[in-house]
Design a protein around this nucleic acid. Sequence first.
DNA 1: AACGCGGGGTG
DNA 2: CACCCAGCGTT
Length: 362
Amino acid sequence: MRAVSHAGRGSTGGDVFVGRLLPWFDDHGRHDLPWQHPRTPYRVWLSEIMLQQTQVATVIPYFLRFLEHFPTLPDLAAASNDDVMAQWAGLGYYARARNLHAAAQRCVELHGGDLPRDFDALLALPGIGRSTAGAILSQAWNDRFAILDGNVKRVMSRFHGIEGFPGLPAVEKVLWALANEHVSQVPDGRLADYTQAQMDLGATVCTRARPACVICPLTDDCVARRDGRVEQLPTPKPGKTLPEREATALLLRDARGHILLGKRPDTGIWAQLWTLPQADSGPALQDWFDAHVEGALELAEPLPVLQHTFSHYRLHLQVLQLGPVALRDGLGDNERLRWVAPTALGSLGLPAPIRKLLLSLE
DNA sequence: AACGCGGGGTG
DNA sequence: CACCCAGCGTT
């Protein structure tokens, strides 16, 4: 993939990502995690399953206790389901424990009581997906397989400046391609370290919040760092589509060119701010107009629809412009409704989109 | 493609 | 309190 040969390699042609990550891991990576000593397939597998969506500090005591109860894979396979679930209790995502137990039994039936050293055979075991299979093969046997977990997605997104939510299939495809390209450049015998190095970097340096770019070994070649987009990447999960609401507002002027503003109620959207008279529906707006204004609403000129996003809905606001008009007798110039000179708008509390609209018209 | 699973960290 | 995470299986 061209993106790698450009961004991932220095002028010498080596892979900068790999070349800087491995020495960093030797000096600053984590080398004393329980599943690293000894780094057997069974222990690596167990750790990888426990670490799915769960942090290292949480996993460690469970991992140690679990191994005391089930020292080997056949021990686990032979255990009762209740015993396995009891050892898992508190870790969450209990399907992981069910799958772990079932996979152990399958390994006894099909693979002589060991985990298979084969990507497709691992993938066929319940609870093992593409990333976990790669993690097991690379960590347990130094085989050349990439991983793509949350850490790697974050590191890759930043290092290569990849836009788009990493959960989207199209984005994930790009990230897998980058991960595969890098892993092809890792020296023989260092695949286990490389896999751990990526996770360590993501967990301790290239963190979700407040990444420590100053001490990052990749900082000189990181696209997000270069472009000042570290805080923006990876692109966050898109929020659920907000409900849409529509409303209509009136931009009324009097003979002096003053604009009619009303004060919002004490509660609700835009509470206590001054804004244009507004209604949720056409009839409601007509009613308000007839009660307050001398003139014909039909003559009002529609402005481009304003779009404003609140935390819980998106508002499309149709503003109708009309003037000059006068208020009916006895209305206006009080604490809830008044004519305001354009020059005085800046000193009132106006909702941001309304302020922007009014100032753009002057 | 979207969702459920679960407990813990984080702003 | 809302959001996110060392993912995977199901729908």
